[in-house]
């Protein structure tokens, strides 16, 4: 029996990748997507050959088993609640929400309706991440001194304007990027973030946007490890790729340098939008993430990435904003 899946909103650019992932999955039927903006909706429908629903509730009325919520961050709650009421299991884009109240409400709604919720942390399904996670858990690096985390990128506004709109995204680069590394730190070290210090500012696009575009964090975790996160939109828009995802884990018994996107070719092609461009040939972690979502529905079990994982990572991002504002260390 095929599983019917839908995508609620195409506002997040990852929706474009997810629809391709879902089409490639055996036993899954991508019923369509809902998107309120008609011209965008028609555009995506045509581009990807998908059925477009102008209203979310019409897509939800199709009797879906699971939905991917790919709206703007600030609209996650509204769509997750609608999906939960329609008894759909939910996978939602990161960050979970832009404030703790919304995140809690999403949890309550899903629990009340007996549906599972999974936060989209695709890097957990990346093979380099899994290899490094195993090395840490097996103690191959010894006790960990610290982690140097890098998730810096270009400004995503060329793909979607709302990423730099505080009312929709909840913030800028910090809201966009911190949660990925914060989640992996928690996961790798089986620890919680205790303290956050951050410098956030709009250093790169002071005249174009009104959110933070530069950010450096230093975290203290409950197991004694310290970790830095660079969440800046500091790569130029003409960089060979959107950016980087790196972690250097420095332990007493050894150091591991993880560069998750290191499997790429350098392409020099006349007329290419980026020249040169780094064309990746590594496995797509989104595929594995979506497979886990589908498997969790089939097996009637909670997914491996939980609401709490999304919630705790969001708390780190929110603490970074508070730290930057107060110029002090924020305890979680």
């Amino acid at each position: 029996m095929t599983m019917r899946i839908g995508i609620l909103s195409f506002a997040h650019l990852h929706a474009e990748g997810y629809q391709a992932n879902l089409k490639n999955m055996a036993g899954v039927e991508l019923v369509g997507f809902s998107h309120e903006d008609a011209s965008e909706g028609r555009h995506f429908a045509e581009r990807y050959g998908l059925r477009w629903f102008p209203r979310h509730k019409d897509l939800l009325a199709e009797g879906l088993e699971g939905v991917l919520v790919c709206s703007e961050n600030a609209r996650h709650r509204e769509l997750v609640e609608m999906a939960a009421e329609a008894k759909c299991h939910v996978l939602y884009e990161k960050p979970i929400a832009t404030n703790p109240t919304d995140a809690q409400a999403m949890k309550t709604s899903c629990e009340r309706n007996g549906v599972h919720f999974m936060t989209a942390f695709p890097m957990r399904f990346d093979r380099s991440v899994q290899e490094v996670g195993a090395a840490i858990r097996e103690g191959r690096l010894g006790r960990i001194y610290g982690v140097n985390g890098i998730n810096h990128s270009e400004i995503p506004t060329a793909h979607r304007r709302w990423f730099a709109d505080k009312s929709l995204a909840g913030g800028g680069a910090a809201m966009d990027h911190i949660v990925h590394l914060a989640d992996l730190l928690r996961w790798f070290l089986s620890a919680e973030v205790l303290e956050v210090y951050a410098e956030l500012d709009n250093l790169f696009y002071p005249h174009a946007v009104e959110v933070d575009t530069a950010g450096l964090l230093l975290l203290s975790l409950s197991n004694g490890t310290q970790a830095s996160i660079d969440c800046s939109w500091s790569r130029p828009t003409w960089y060979p790729r959107w950016g980087h995802f790196k972690m250097e884990i420095v332990g007493e018994a050894g150091t591991v340098v993880m560069d998750s996107l290191a499997q790429y070719l350098t392409l020099y092609s006349s007329g290419a939008p980026r020249n040169p461009s780094w064309v990746g040939f590594g496995p797509d972690p989104n595929q594995a993430m979506l497979e886990e979502f589908v498997a969790s529905i089939q097996e009637k079990r909670p997914p491996s990435v939980t609401w709490n994982d999304g919630f705790q990572a969001m708390r780190v991002a929110l603490a970074a904003y508070e730290s930057s504002l107060t110029k002090s260390v924020v305890a979680l």
Binding site: G146, N148, Y197, G224, T225, S228, E252, V329
Partner: peptide, 28 residues
């Protein structure tokens, strides 16, 4: 703002420091 972790045994150590400049930029 800086953090430093020492080895449980021996002189090994690792530190990270964030600097904020008066003129605006930041450094790690």
């Amino acid at each position: 703002y800086a953090r430093l972790n020492r080895a449980t045994d021996g002189p090994g150590q690792y530190a990270q420091a964030i600097l904020r400049f008066k003129s605006g930029p930041m450094a790690l």
